[in-house]
Design a protein around this nucleic acid. Structure first.
Lengths: 250, 250
DNA sequence: ATTGACCATCACGTAACGTGATGCCTTATA
DNA sequence: TATAAGGCATCACGTTACGTGATGGTCAAT
């Protein structure tokens, strides 16, 4: 049920260091940690890891992957279907490269002629060709949408005093240098934030709330907006939100 | 006829910086440089670049690629055929990943069950799976390392008589003007050489053995050393080694 | 003669780990 | 039950393959 680092590494064919790294950057943290500090990965962790590796195969950066799987409108099945499509496209690219290769072989034998352009058909090392499409699905539009609201709450909210969000931000900004994210004061303020979001925008699950917090630090646009209330506020909130979600679930 | 950096970059789909980088590390330097210092790439340069990118697609490091295409026994057509094979293997890996993906989709829908092992079929992010094979074809550090020792064996071996290597060299030197490299006598002596190398230095594949033979004539230092036992011995051995490798591999 | 697109060379930055070094944990075996 | 081997953890610095400006020369067209 619970895998240790080496077991996971051997099972999926990656290095232990890679797992450490993913933990470090918060991309994939093990479900449990023993008293001795050993990482224990659950079956669900494995499934997230699978997702991560599919995206990696497609050339996404870890940062992007993190954004995607933490996106509020990320959907497992949709992602899998999308990845299927991408993998097929990649296969076609490979097919084209093989054709180019075949032509080149004939060319070196002097059997045919080949233009310089033809010599590079199927090649595309420029940019990740899938990113644009993925961005439309999970990235900017969705994020922008959430961000728009947030911007109203931060930038304009600053002017519109008496705004509840503004008050909460200020309260948190004042707390962030004095107490830890785990402190009762911070957790109380974070609960206000949680309730505020649930009243004003759809309903946030604890999981989604935690994900949102991670977005605050993962996505620059959020970070910028939030940090207007004080440098490091985004990070402080992220931690507080995670703690809040973890301690209130189960 | 002559392409400037941006033209190459656009044609191939890589960045200008990449070309600069390849020049810096001596992987691909332009055929010409203008007075003003502009890089001008020839058609041949493009073909080398194509080779480089094929290898890159297969996950080889730039260092490895440099070693390969500078290897004395590098052969353009052979490389292309090898790459074709590798690309096809990669395609199959992708195929497997897609199958895994399909299974996973069904699995998330609860239609089927899936073991943790199955969830990662087709994955292999561990090591470059093609490197081993390429290593045998074009040789690598391990071979180079053994070659250093070999050099000592030829130079110093002459003095340390009774040395087995010395005996084999002498036997071959005596044969080279009397029989052909394909003769049973020569092949028997060459087999002794092959066994000797395998006993004394790691294990030589037949491919590596053949490559080593080609090195004897391609690299002056080897030629000089070997030919101390008799003019033309290096060439004789090269042919004998190639025949030995080809007839024993089937 | 000037402008704008292109070229060059630093030189520092970054991503995704690799690679020890050092020390605690655990488990099979004597 | 002791002990040794193998696994795990955390630094912390190294590496690969470029990205990203900054700064300044070059060239063809206006």
């Amino acid at each position: 049920m619970n895998y240790k680092v080496k077991e996971v590494a051997d099972l999926v064919g990656i290095s232990i260091r890679t797992l450490h790294h993913y933990d470090e950057i918060g991309l994939l943290s093990p479900a449990k940690i023993t008293e001795a500090g050993y990482r224990l990965y659950s079956e669900e962790d494995l499934e997230i890891l699978q997702q991560i590796l599919f995206f990696k195969e497609l050339g996404f950066s870890l940062k992007k992957i993190k954004e995607i799987i933490n996106s509020p409108n990320f959907n497992r099945e949709e992602a899998l279907l999308q990845q299927r499509k991408f993998l097929q496209e990649k296969q076609q690219r490979l097919e084209k490269m093989i054709e180019t290769l075949d032509k080149t072989i004939k060319y070196t034998r002097g059997e045919i002629n080949m233009s310089d352009r033809e010599k590079f058909e199927g090649f595309d090392f420029s940019k990740n060709p899938y990113e644009q499409e993925a961005r439309e699905k999970w990235g900017d539009k969705a994020v922008d949408h959430a961000n728009e609201k947030l911007e109203k709450l931060t930038v304009e909210g600053k002017k519109a005093l008496g705004n509840e969000a503004d008050e909460i931000y200020k309260k948190l900004a004042a707390l962030k240098d004095k107490v830890s994210p785990a402190s009762p004061e911070a957790q109380t303020a974070i609960k206000e934030w949680f309730d505020y979001l649930n009243i004003n925008f759809g309903n946030y699950s604890l999981q989604a709330f935690k994900g949102l917090g991670q977005m605050y630090v993962a996505d620059e646009r959020f970070t910028r907006n939030i940090d207007q209330y004080g440098e490091g506020l985004a990070e402080f909130m992220c931690k507080a939100m995670e703690l809040f979600a973890d301690s209130n679930s189960r």
